[in-house]
Design a protein around this nucleic acid. Structure first.
Lengths: 163, 163
DNA sequence: CATATATGTCAACAACACTGACATATGCCG
DNA sequence: CGGCATATGTCAGTGTTGTTGACATATATG
């Protein structure tokens, strides 16, 4: 009951709550990626291809460097994955109109169909979670995740999700 | 204004909301893993070692198969990582008392110190996010994540986080 | 024209996952 | 006790995804 004990107890509680968030993030992400992974395993693509299809589908006409700053990988890594998707006609490239150095990326019909299939596998899981938890929980879910993102990335994430 | 248009509009809204969750999960996870990755890069360990240290620290005396079902990787994959941690005295193994086939895993003092350093790097990020978002948002964050987890895994996750 | 930027490419390498096959120690059941 | 199951360990080969470093080409910009 000394004053010193109170902050210590709060710190302990705090750590438990923080670990709970860390673990839930880990477990949810672990299961959340399994749905598309199973579909991808049947093709010769992997998770990296999925991410490219996802973000090109989400931002048609995105440039290579735009994609790089979302994915935060090197251009050499992206190049391999993107090259395979282009070569197999899931993605097409157009030379930029304003800046002809840029390559603007778009999903082809084939790519769009595949992306929708991959999305569908995650959609059901997330939709169920939203439904069970309810709209207020969902708002909290978004709010906390947004604040976990790097401070200097938050604006760019907001631009993405508020489209 | 025909009845047909209403469900279509709802579906569209729904998809936007689902994609928002998917993207926030992606971006938050991307940044959330960067803190420990930077520390790990200075050692000769990687993200896989971190996960093992984390869950052994969280459940002292966990068995190898217990760890395998949390990590959902093969024993061959775990073996390499765990072997390195044991060999460098971050983790020690004890033969199970009830079942002598089991190897019970514990962090050494060295392992505990390293785990706390890794945890600290994520703690600040999550603590700030909790603080900015507020307690109700945090409850929603937990609730949605828990429901994103596989149905048949939810009990085991609950057992974990409610310790 | 000179420099910067956007993109592409080659090569070597590392982390982390997988499959398949086999080995050892221990528990448990009839 | 003998036989089968389980917990763990190990060897070998492979694939995906990331890295660094070096260099090339086309285009923009001052």
């Amino acid at each position: 009951m000394t004053p010193r004990k109170i902050p210590q107890s709060n710190l302990y509680l705090r750590e438990e709550e923080l670990r709970r968030g860390i673990e839930l993030l880990y477990f949810a992400y672990r299961d959340f990626t399994r749905d598309p992974d199973e579909i991808l395993a049947k093709s010769r693509f992997g998770r990296a291809h999925h991410r490219v299809l996802y973000f090109v589908g989400r931002s048609p006409g995105i440039t290579v460097s735009g994609l790089l700053s979302i994915l935060r990988i090197t251009k050499q890594s992206l190049s391999r994955v993107l090259g395979e998707l282009v070569e197999q006609s899931y993605i097409r490239q157009e030379t930029g109109t304003e800046d002809r150095r840029q390559r603007l990326l778009y999903l082809t019909d084939k790519g769009e169909a595949f992306e929708r299939q991959l999305f569908a596998s995650q959609r059901d899981r997330v939709a169920r979670a939203y439904k069970v938890a309810g709209p207020e929980a969902v708002a909290g879910f978004w709010e906390v995740l947004l604040n976990i993102v790097d401070d200097d990335e938050r604006d760019s994430v907001l631009k993405h999700i508020e489209k």
